[in-house]
């Protein structure tokens, strides 16, 4: 066990964990941020994606201790005082979730995409979502939400 300082959703936390503990377990079990989901634990599905310094990053394999220097934002950190960000709003408009288990990672990845580029190309959208799996078949609605964001100019 060692002590670890993490910056998550604008707050700084000190946690005691085994140094190899993957980030997702720290977020979910030590900080109570259960928005990021464990889908595979093998960096194959995207359910666990969080923002690390603004970039969509899997949290299921790499140790929390690798992220000491970074600013981490989880899905819980995307809305401020109950105000959802534009990606969350567009997803709601389009009804872009069924069970919702894949949603957290996809909303986070889409937020990162639009931070980089307000008018991403088709290829950029596909690249950003390539490693995100959804089994309910919400893909079309998610893509519709993204198209809405592009045409609204975010």
């Amino acid at each position: 066990m060692s002590s670890l300082i993490l910056h998550v959703n604008g707050a700084t936390h000190e946690i005691n964990v085994d140094s190899d503990t993957p980030l997702i377990f720290v977020l979910r079990n030590h900080l109570g941020l259960t928005g990021p989901k464990l889908g595979c634990g093998q960096e194959q599905c995207g359910a666990c994606v969080v923002l690390v310094d603004g970039e969509a990053t899997n949290s299921c394999v790499r140790a929390a201790s690798e992220f000491r220097e970074n600013k981490i934002i989880t899905i819980e950190g995307l809305s401020k005082d109950g105000n959802l960000n534009s990606v969350q709003q567009a997803f709601i408009e389009e009804g872009a979730a069924q069970c919702g288990y894949c949603t957290s990672g996809i909303v986070v990845a889409t937020t990162a995409l639009f931070k980089q580029n307000a008018k991403p190309s088709r290829e950029a959208v596909h690249a950003a979502l390539h490693d995100h799996l959804c089994r309910c078949g919400s893909h079309r609605r998610i893509l519709n939400a993204i198209e809405r964001l592009i045409s609204d100019g975010m």
Binding site: R28, L33, T34, G35, P36, K37, L38, T74, I75, E76, L78, S79, L84, Q88, F91, I92, G95, A97, G100, Y101, T103, S104, V107
Partner: peptide
Amino acid sequence: MVNIMTGNLSYIHD
């Protein structure tokens, strides 16, 4: 739907 989008829907895993 809103809980899903904000990460607040609690699943059995949570």
